[in-house]
Simulated scan of single mutants.
Amino acid sequence: MISTKELSRRGFLNMGAAAGAGLVLSQTGLIRPAHAAAPLAPVKAEEALIAFGHTGPTSDEGWTWAHDQGMKAVEAAFPGIKTTYVESIPYSADATRIFRQFVSQGANMVFATSNYGDFLYDVAKRAPKVGFYECDGRNPLDNLGTYYVQHWYPTYVAGIAAGAMSPTGKLGYVASFPVPSVYSGTNAFLMGARTVNPNATLQCISINSWFDPQAATQAGTALLDNGCDVLFGIMDEAGYLQVAQDRGKKAVMWNTDLRRYGPDAYISSIVVNFNDFYVKQVGRRLEGSWTPTYELLPMGGGVDRDAWGATVPAEVAAKADAVRTKMMTEGYSPFVGEIKDAKGNIKVAKGQTMTEQELYHWNWSIEGVSGLDG
């Protein structure tokens, strides 16, 4: 039986969370529902339909583009398979209608590439013979799994480089919404920066969208006008990188390699790759062994830092990469207390290491981060 410590290190639910959700640990090390139905029946590739529901346009060169590459990897791995997708699905009743449409079209598996909550959950409950996955999902079912990435580790690494390259220590962040992925990203970034610049701060501006180039550009401009000299964010496009390029500042990006939009400003990017995950899950669905899993894809296995930008000094890259190597080879975690929130309250006791689930569900800002907590 795999240990609780090893389970946490690999990115699966911790045992306390698993028990609370009615989940059990299988011999393979994957968390499954305690009362899961039998694996769904096998499907021939040429008779299968795999559907993808996206939060943004597949042309965004960011988050949705990365998931679309995963769909293309599935098509390449299983010749003859049929795929379908809908992009820019709103967070409304229209989402429910679209997911129901996938089911009515005969989809054998549906991937929601963002968190659609009840809009997806209600559809999955009524379609027990369809396998569902929700990226960044929170409510598992016997036929609904969840997956996400441990982005906080490469973000911490990028934060080290950002802190070293910031003359003022004033960092800026273009946020979508005050959600856990934003809290864990901002906190990890500043914690990394403070290892080389203890007085560094991070100012955030939320634009209430995952994809809005105009709003992201305006937010990036405002942050630079407020004195920030390195920008970071979680946007699905290159708006604030172009602002940094035009203003002679620096930026760290998300999702993909976007350096061509700001080659002098580009430090790195938190890059995601879901190809292997999608191919594996579709393969299990086709062969008749699929039941839902709940996974946080690790650094080096779904998320990582991008190659360093051309203007990153060699000594800065080496310092940051030394920490990345320690994470990869020794299981090092920098998320160890004492950690205080933005109001000075101790949230993580001295010597206590945050679990993967605590990092995944992070919903408060650390000292030095402003703009997310009102």
Results as ranks from 00 to 15, higher is better:
64 T>A: 05
156 Y>E: 04
245 Q>V: 06
264 D>L: 02
356 E>Y: 13
344 G>R: 02
44 K>H: 13
5 K>Y: 11
206 S>Y: 13
247 R>G: 08
100 R>G: 15
269 S>W: 11
36 A>R: 12
374 G>Q: 11
212 D>A: 12
270 I>S: 02
129 K>W: 01
287 E>G: 13
49 L>P: 07
302 G>M: 00
181 S>I: 14
353 T>K: 14
148 Y>D: 14
316 V>M: 06
329 T>Q: 07
195 T>F: 09
272 V>D: 07
98 I>F: 09
70 G>I: 00
230 V>S: 02
158 A>I: 13
104 S>W: 13
188 A>S: 09
169 G>V: 03
122 D>I: 00
163 G>H: 07
276 D>Q: 00
311 T>E: 03
42 P>F: 01
77 A>E: 02
27 Q>V: 09
212 D>T: 07
132 F>E: 08
241 L>E: 02
309 G>E: 05
199 N>L: 11
179 V>H: 10
193 A>F: 01
353 T>G: 11
18 A>M: 07
78 F>T: 06
172 G>K: 03
97 R>C: 14
26 S>H: 10
133 Y>W: 05
343 K>S: 15
280 K>H: 07
44 K>Y: 09
126 R>A: 15
320 A>R: 10
217 T>N: 15
35 H>G: 15
58 T>R: 14
33 P>V: 03
264 D>A: 03
341 D>P: 12
77 A>I: 01
213 P>G: 12
345 N>C: 13
337 G>I: 00
309 G>M: 05
164 A>G: 03
79 P>D: 08
159 G>N: 12
171 L>D: 00
241 L>P: 07
202 L>I: 11
79 P>L: 08
292 P>M: 07
155 T>K: 13
174 V>T: 03
139 N>P: 15
287 E>Y: 13
60 D>N: 00
350 K>N: 08
169 G>A: 04
40 L>K: 04
361 H>R: 15
355 T>S: 00
104 S>G: 12
176 S>T: 11
270 I>C: 05
209 S>D: 09
124 A>V: 06
319 K>N: 10
337 G>K: 09
354 M>W: 06
